[in-house]
Write a protein that binds this DNA or RNA. Structure first.
Lengths: 150, 150
DNA sequence: GTGGTTGCAAAACGTTTGCAGAATG
DNA sequence: CATTCTGCAAACGTTTTGCAACCAC
């Protein structure tokens, strides 16, 4: 945990940026909620518990900065808010989401199932794949269970 | 073309809605630009050429209505605007996009490559798939060609 | 002291809504 | 004639920006 913050600090400094207390607090919130997909407002409210004087604009600016550095990933599930996720250590982050249309939960699958498809894209469509994104909408296992009972 | 409008008219009327001139103009714009992924503002500007007195709110309301009827599909590429696509006649529309990070173009692949994956999801994760979405970010064949020359 | 950084407030953005009037069947 | 539908303007929620003050090296 501390080592990950240290690493992010180095990434910032390598580009001439500083790890200010506000930025550190923001990163800590992201680390502590790595499983979730927090909106900027979510992050803001959580950061406020650590650093009550922080402004919403700073959170936005920090999240934007971290996105540029590929420390977090900005994503969009179609409700009007951007959501932010800490990226793993592997340079390429594969984000496969299971979005439940019943309870709204978003689970992640970590496997990468798309490599053979990316090969076909390169060969048949001459498209150079840099990243991808795969979302499934449906009913999650929890709701499936719940529905069975009723 | 006319038959597709006729069909949409029937779908509207089946739910008690009317195909007003404004709605028809909006549908025509979508039909004429079936290849593109137009934003509401794009549609608005194009509709204005046919029906100059139309208001932006009407375009939004029409697009929302058509989305409810599954005549168009609303989607989101992460820039802050919703984009709208006419749906094909097949009930399930599979939207695989090749998004070029260099020129911003969005191409579509029509094939459905994900059926085996959906099977695994059902069996290993007990997730019932209703729909999915697959986007690739990368360099399109046109830009690849262009880059080769320079 | 120079340059990045902050909080605040105001502005901008895409989108939605309230309303009175017009059009439709 | 009841209902749906429209255009306009205002409101909305999220995000961005301008700015003066602030802090770190």
């Amino acid at each position: 945990m501390e080592t990950r913050i240290e690493k992010i600090k180095q990434q910032l400094q390598a580009q001439g940026y500083k790890l200010t207390p506000q930025r550190e607090a923001t990163v800590r919130v992201l680390l502590e909620n790595e499983e979730d997909h927090l909106s900027a407002e979510d992050v803001f409210m959580l950061v406020k518990e650590i650093a009550p004087e922080i402004g919403l604009a700073t959170v936005y600016r920090t999240l934007e900065l971290l996105t540029e550095l590929h420390v977090v990933e900005k994503m969009n599930f179609g409700d009007g808010v951007a959501r932010y996720d800490l990226r793993g250590d592997n340079s390429k982050h594969h984000h496969h989401h299971l979005i439940c249309v019943q309870c709204g939960s978003v689970d992640e699958i970590m496997e990468d199932w798309l490599l053979p498809l990316e090969h076909r894209l390169e060969q048949e469509y001459h498209f150079t794949v840099l990243d991808h994104r795969l979302d499934f909408q449906g009913i999650c296992h929890r709701c499936n269970e719940k529905n069975k009972k009723s």
